[in-house]
Nucleic acid binder design. Sequence first.
DNA 1: TCTTGATTTGACCATCTGGTCAAACTCACG
DNA 2: CGTGAGTTTGACCAGATGGTCAAATCAAGA
Lengths: 202, 202
Amino acid sequence: MPKDRAPTRIQKKNRAAILEAALNVFSAHGFRGSTVDQIAAEAGLSKPNLLYYFPSKEAIHTELLSGLLETWLAPLHDLDEDGDPMEEILAYIRRKLQMSQELPRESRLFANELVQGAPRIHEALSKDLKELVDEKTVILTRWMDQGKIARVHPYHLMFSIWALTQHYADFEVQVRAILGEEDPFEGADPFVDTLYRKLLTP
Amino acid sequence: MPKDRAPTRIQKKNRAAILEAALNVFSAHGFRGSTVDQIAAEAGLSKPNLLYYFPSKEAIHTELLSGLLETWLAPLHDLDEDGDPMEEILAYIRRKLQMSQELPRESRLFANELVQGAPRIHEALSKDLKELVDEKTVILTRWMDQGKIARVHPYHLMFSIWALTQHYADFEVQVRAILGEEDPFEGADPFVDTLYRKLLTP
DNA sequence: TCTTGATTTGACCATCTGGTCAAACTCACG
DNA sequence: CGTGAGTTTGACCAGATGGTCAAATCAAGA
């Protein structure tokens, strides 16, 4: 294990390679379905060498999850109470959909964790996520009070946005099995736009 | 392994117990995250005894999946082209939501499989599911042509229904982390009802 | 160039896991 | 009862897996 000085060039490169490889493997097979050997091979390292940079398989997984949680929640952070309500919400949705398209591995990493009861990020959910959602819920509710958007249950509105947008990454196989050659996001974008416009128009 | 005569009383009981236990374990930990010992313990059997009834861990999993697929798709089968369009669709959605509530293990069993690329049911997806969806899509499109419901992309309409309803089972931890004590389905039911009414009203 | 810390690895270990097997036990039925 | 099929299990095995360690190799600054 490297000392806690400033990381060397090699440390930076290898740690990054490991996390990248782990993202591939964990998102495709889940925690228990992934092996350290697999990750090491994908990162171009030997197993002992990988374990020189991270103390354990679990440590890699934890670091991935906590490192990516911020990225994952960023779009919601950006929801601006001073912007136009409908446009702010639609922009959030569009950005979430874009993340499904561009970061499907991240989406599936979280999906794997959540489906199995989120044993490793339960705390982050009921603290960081809950806090952020509650903060934004206040804004949504105010908009509803002002008649700027239709009144709906704000939590369920949030759930629906997450469900709809992440569905395209998490259940990509199913989507592709139905759509065939058609590009999923080509149709998804106007669909969700229409859906939330109709739902939220007062 | 029992001969292929009519199953005895004990065979019926034990096979049922094994499948029930396996549903618990597989839905909570995924295929690779589950062990035969776990399933055997949950079923109240020894490992060798369990393997007397099923040839392998994989065989249990496969039987579970294929056995439950029909149940899972039943609500869509029931979509009746002769009924009232809006009410038929809303009834389908309500039934899917109810299944999320009453059969969360089944939902998570499929979710686990799908997130990881559906290695074991890929075929069923692109055959049975695709076929059923295409059949019902024809009905939806006709309703749209007749102006009975608003025109939206029928495949994406289907995805949105699956995503929204199954979200409550598959990501239950997250939903509960946000909602706290509040009953998820209490709010979900009117929310999705409103959502699809607004979306589909011409 | 030399030295020292950083990096890499082959060999190894303990444990877990899916699966086997022969022997023992139980049950239903003639 | 007795008997043969159905059922159960302790002991066991092979391979996979997470992780360790001492020794070897490498890299960069003095």
